[in-house]
Design a protein around this nucleic acid. Structure first.
Lengths: 314, 314
DNA sequence: TTATTTAAATAATTTAAAAATATGGAGACT
DNA sequence: AGTCTCCATATTTTTAAATTATTTAAATAA
């Protein structure tokens, strides 16, 4: 690694003198005194072993070596300016990439709207959405591949300590029935009614499925007695199955907003049963937090939910 | 003129850390202590308002902003290296341009050989030869358009003080006759014999012509009585005229070397008459002297002549 | 777990570089 | 000649950056 025989300040001074044709004017332009300019150029000339300016006449004129150096000087300073701009853009969210992690549910129904809002405000930041399991999302946040994620399940305990986990919103998993189902007209079901239903569920690996099972079990239900018509790995598929009258399901309300208002699916309350899960924001506190990530967390997320109110849609 | 938010040293450090993956190793590489490296990066991060390195783990990893900055960093440092190389080349005469001025005579017969020798030694320095009158050459040297010149005439007195005038060599203006001329067999002519000759001369504007006229006049000759057959503006044309038997002429010996050895022109001595002029090197002491110019003056010129010996040809 | 190693941050001191102020000299213009 | 402008130089002051020494934190090994 060779030492550099000049500094950016010297190049800046060189450029200013060349432009102004005068040491004095260059000094004024750069808000320094004239001797400061003289000394810097003298240093530069000493270090490069060249004469840069002809100081004889009325004007300070570049020598051949000076002109050569000036060419490089301009290029270097331009690159510097560009670098500054790029960094500024990054700081002011006019560039960069935000990588967001989410589970299937939030990734499908919630994140697109959030990302839409974010991109509307910061169209120059590209956003990448990675939909994975809670576990894998957690690891990605831990090693920096994901800036910020929303999860609905439980993190492995080792990750739990490593990451910052902030409760974000409550996601209700509503019991939904086909609109033609006999029980769909009732205002409220009893827990025992659940045993009469045929369920269409997510497959047993899914975090959401586990959460539902656990909550039902905790509320005293025997999940073995529940009849499972079929297991599908896509919420959309389940929704279609329910709408076709194939069975009932516990689905996140965020995923059935449209169907509820269209009346193609019925949401039914069950006495003494609330199937809810906490959505949590996870970040890695020991890693660099990009501005984009900060902004997303502080400005975008709160617009969609708070701890007190359920998830809402803009 | 915006202030620059970073220094080249900081960029150098950034690059080193990125390459080594460690602050410590970068410090070793740059022959500074580790705190110096840390502090500089901290300054850089403060000034740019970004985080550049993820220092959490075993290795120092670049953040997104860091990677962005590094890209520019590499480009900037490369340009710096290139600039250094270009300057070095200039210093070691591997580049640059040498502008030489000369009068018609020296420019035609002397300079090509000198420049040939120079270019043989320094093939990467391009040389430009400007043939002008003594007056114009002088002004060009004064305002820096010409690095160095050889003149045979008298400079205007204002330029005389401004420029450095170094006697270089004596250029003899020999009386030449057609080889068939009756007088060409004589060993030596008398001054009076000149009145019998028909002269082919340079036009009266020419410096060389003026010099010749003045010397003849000074030696007691009445130049009005000399018969001038014709005035031409080219030495080559005069040489041809003389060879064709149209008349005699006073010509610089440097211009008739070939013809003398071929015997197509005869050089004749005139008793008590020496038509000689001083060739002088002129430079501008108040201006930057390029290496190429220095070398030309110190190494090339002395090989062709000295004050004691007349001009010689290699 | 605890000890050990390694890396980076921090604190305090020293050193060095780059400013400013004041002054002097040379060329240009009146 | 006299004045003005511009650059160089000398000296002092200020500021910045480097060093040594120490602390903190993380990763590795016993």
């Amino acid at each position: 690694m060779p030492e550099l025989p000049f500094t950016l300040d010297q190049l800046r001074i060189l450029k200013a003198i060349a432009a102004q044709g005068s040491f004095k004017k260059a000094a004024d332009l750069l808000y320094v005194t004239q001797p400061a300019v003289s000394l810097q150029i003298q240093n530069l000339e000493k270090q490069l072993e060249i004469t840069i300016f002809d100081r004889g006449g009325r004007k300070a004129l570049l020598t051949e070596a000076g002109r050569l150096l000036l060419e490089y000087c301009e290029r270097i300073l331009n690159q510097c300016d560009e670098a500054c701009k790029a960094i500024e853009d990054l700081n002011s969210l006019k560039g960069g990439t935000l990588v967001i992690g989410a589970s299937q549910t939030t990734g499908t129904y919630l994140m697109p709207r959030m990302i839409g809002l974010f991109r509307q405000k910061y169209p120059d930041v590209s956003v990448q959405l990675q939909v994975h399991s809670t576990r894998r999302t957690g690891w990605s946040v831990a090693n920096g591949q994901i800036d910020l994620a929303i999860i609905g399940g439980q993190l492995p305990s080792d990750l739990e300590n490593l990451l910052q986990v902030i409760p974000y919103a409550t996601d209700e998993l509503a019991l939904v029935l086909p609109s033609k189902h006999p029980l769909s007209t009732k205002k409220e079901l009893l827990k025992e009614d659940l045993y009469k239903l045929n369920f269409v569920t997510l497959d047993s690996q899914s975090t959401t499925r586990k959460v539902v099972d656990k909550l039902l079990q905790d509320s005293g239900l025997d999940i073995q007695r529940l009849k499972i018509e079929m297991e599908l790995n896509s919420l959309e598929a389940i929704k279609n199955a329910v709408q076709s009258g194939l069975g009932a399901s516990f689905l996140p309300v965020v995923s059935i907003e449209r169907e509820l208002s269209a009346g193609t699916i019925h949401k039914v309350f069950v006495a003494d049963l609330e199937v809810k899960r906490e959505l949590k924001i996870i970040t890695n506190p020991s890693r660099y937090t990009s501005r984009a990530s900060e902004v997303f967390k502080k400005n975008i997320l709160p617009q969609f939910a708070s701890l007190e109110s359920p998830l809402r849609y803009l």
